[in-house]
Design a protein around this nucleic acid. Sequence first.
DNA 1: CCAAAAGTGTTTTGTTTACACCCATGA
DNA 2: TCATGGGTGTAAACAAAACACTTTTGG
Lengths: 241, 241
Amino acid sequence: MKRGSYTYDFPRPTVTVDVVVFGVDMTTPLELKVLLIKRGRAGTAFEGYWALPGGFVDKDEDLEVAARRELREEAKAEPAYIEQLATFGKPGRDPRGHVISVAFMALVRIDQTEIEAGDDAEPGSETWMPVDNLTKIDLAFDHDEILSTALKRLRSKMRWHPIGIDLMPETFSIDDLRRLYETLLGRELNRRNFRRKVLSHDVLSCAESRRIGGPGRPAELWRFDRAAYEALLDEGGDFEV
Amino acid sequence: MKRGSYTYDFPRPTVTVDVVVFGVDMTTPLELKVLLIKRGRAGTAFEGYWALPGGFVDKDEDLEVAARRELREEAKAEPAYIEQLATFGKPGRDPRGHVISVAFMALVRIDQTEIEAGDDAEPGSETWMPVDNLTKIDLAFDHDEILSTALKRLRSKMRWHPIGIDLMPETFSIDDLRRLYETLLGRELNRRNFRRKVLSHDVLSCAESRRIGGPGRPAELWRFDRAAYEALLDEGGDFEV
DNA sequence: CCAAAAGTGTTTTGTTTACACCCATGA
DNA sequence: TCATGGGTGTAAACAAAACACTTTTGG
């Protein structure tokens, strides 16, 4: 591959965005997944590696707009939530030159995307990779570091902010939400106390009972009430779990 | 996929770092200050405005290294603490073109710098500006937005991390530390309970009593014990105040 | 009527808050 | 010995954890 003069080796650093997209499979046990793209194009850096969706920032393009664009173009996903994570610019992180990446974290409702699971994807195509598998896989560039920053942020932020709900389907049971928290925080949560605490904030509104003929009593379904949450914030409260 | 395309020739955004440097004047009442530079150079953007210290990232220079360099060159200050804050890239934020700024927050012990207070500085020179004054002053670029992001981060982070101590002199009394927290958090803290809670973490070690002949009983002086703090973290604890 | 999963009430435990009191120093 | 600010003990209020129990469904 020719390094050099043509596109990348400028005296000024190049700017990209990369997006860590999380989704949750509502199976039992529930699984946290991250959206990855298989790098193609023979001769380019990290050919055949899994990488985070991302790309260059266009001229006069806002950073978050760029992140959302890449998400749409590369991952065909609309985020329920997106936030800037951190910017990675260590020299040597990209073999093509001095490339600075502004990383974002996005949460999507996995049931609203059409992305296949499985890791036998074609180059250029995308997959939902279980986060637990990723200790075994080398990602392109410093994407493992970006991913672990995102995981840390998700796990700490979901304890005070209702962003965990952005990983759930539109309506969900309290027990499913608890299972999400248990999986992501890596510890058991008391069923009774979790329900009491979550409902105490008055930011969930009840829908109709679920009907899937599984065993046991059907659970009540709830949905997030954004207006009520804004009200909670105004009173100085938070969504502590 | 645009990454790796050799035909993706485009005008690149420029990358800068800006640093929000906080310091505290141990006067009564205690004052939080931010380090600002007066912009000079007739004909340049925002001439005569106050601005955060900052500048261009050099080729193959790490972002935090660049921030520390600007701090040293422009502000003659060594930080007790520094962290990346966020990256600002809204189109139009810099009249000179598409400039993306990676913002850092730094904390310094104000008694270890030689920067003068007062706002009648020469262009190119620096001052410690009380944060409370800054509602009245227009800063250059979007530096008011960067500053308020930094303030928010400082205020929220100091409740779980001992970074407030990085604004204090090497040794300090518990009451002075409480006054710092009261000023920054904007509310009163119970004297008895603050002391109990702060000391309960076992990350402060006692020095000798202070001798300044002020009225009242001389306070015990304490210093932060970094090793003990690491131990606390290992046990899953935190420095909650 | 039994198993399975959802929903609820109450006691126990620990933490936070409030408040009162004592101590050491300089004038 | 008094004013001033620093250091401490303890009971009340509150919130978290633990646990046992009731309800609703399908087979």
